[in-house]
Amino acid sequence: MAVESRDPAEQNQSQPFTGNSDRDLVQQCLQGDSQSFQSLYRRHQKRVRSILFQLCDASALDDLVQEVFLRAWKGLPKFRQSAQFSTWLYRIAWNVASDQRQAAAQRRTRLQVLTHNTPTQQDAPDVMRFHYQDLVQRGLTQLSFDHRTILVLHDLEEVPQKEVAEILGIPVGTVKSRLFHARAAMRQFLQKEGVQL
């Protein structure tokens, strides 16, 4: 059953039930409407969570998602209205992932010094239940952060190459090149693990 708008005056609006566009919601946020930011959060949090899950330690996921939206909220006044909100938000997610990765690397270095370079079992937490997903996840951890980011955004999250270029602040040609090398490295990893491609 179709949901009818209660107010006949609302019938004439371009999007009576699906809600406002990201651009409209951003405008309303800038005018002090915090409910509009809640709408943006609900609309984009799943995708942000998915991106962060692929790039970061899963145990910190909730905190990282909150950090992305906190930075977005604080940064809204600087948001260029000509830009796409989702592209800008995924860029923030990538920055948060980069910061987390650097912090984790520093922690690992300190830990290795403390434990005299003894490797720990905690380096790859077993979050995946399915063998193939686990392999892909392990394959992603073998890639450089740049290559992993490209694969996650383009192949797993299906963000178009042009938008990936905007998110990462690199030319589309670089996206294509990194994608090619990242896929090749992932293929090589999966073949070594016995996956027939």
Rank of each mutant, 00 (worst) to 15 (best):
R101T: 13
G194R: 10
Q106Y: 03
T174K: 12
R138Y: 02
V136T: 06
D126E: 08
Q66G: 08
V3W: 12
R110F: 10
Q28H: 14
I51P: 01
F69L: 06
L40I: 15
G32V: 11
Y41N: 07
Q191C: 10
T109R: 13
R138W: 01
R47M: 11
Q191L: 13
D63C: 05
P77G: 07
D57V: 02
S86P: 00
V159K: 01
E10F: 05
R6W: 13
V175D: 05
K162R: 13
E67N: 12
E157Q: 13
L64Y: 09
Q38S: 15
R129N: 09
R80A: 13
V152F: 01
Q28A: 15
Q81W: 07
A60E: 10
F189I: 03
Q84Y: 10
R187D: 13
E163T: 05
A58E: 12
K78H: 12
A83F: 07
L61F: 04
L30T: 09
A184L: 14
R71L: 12
A105T: 05
P8G: 08
R47T: 14
L55E: 01
Q188F: 07
D33Y: 07
Q106P: 00
R178K: 14
I170M: 13
S34R: 14
T18C: 08
D123H: 06
C29Q: 07
L111N: 14
T115P: 00
R47H: 11
I92P: 03
E4A: 05
R108F: 09
R178A: 03
K74Q: 15
I92M: 06
R183K: 12
F145T: 04
Q102R: 14
Q102N: 02
H154N: 01
L190Y: 00
E166Y: 11
S34E: 14
F53M: 09
R101W: 08
Q84T: 10
R43E: 11
I170E: 07
V48H: 00
W73H: 13
Q137K: 03
P160L: 08
T109C: 08
D24Y: 03
K162F: 07
T109E: 13
I92K: 03
V48L: 02
F85D: 07
F17M: 15
L190Q: 00
Q54E: 10
L135E: 02
Q27L: 14
A182D: 02
F189T: 01
Q106K: 13
M128P: 00
R91I: 01
V113A: 11
L89N: 04
Q15F: 11
V68W: 09
M1I: 05
P8N: 08
L55T: 02
E163L: 08
F130H: 04
I92T: 04
F53T: 06
T120S: 15
C29L: 12
L76A: 05
H147F: 04
R49V: 01
L153Q: 01
L114N: 06
L55C: 02
D22P: 08
A72H: 09
Q133S: 04
A104Y: 02
P119M: 06
A9S: 11
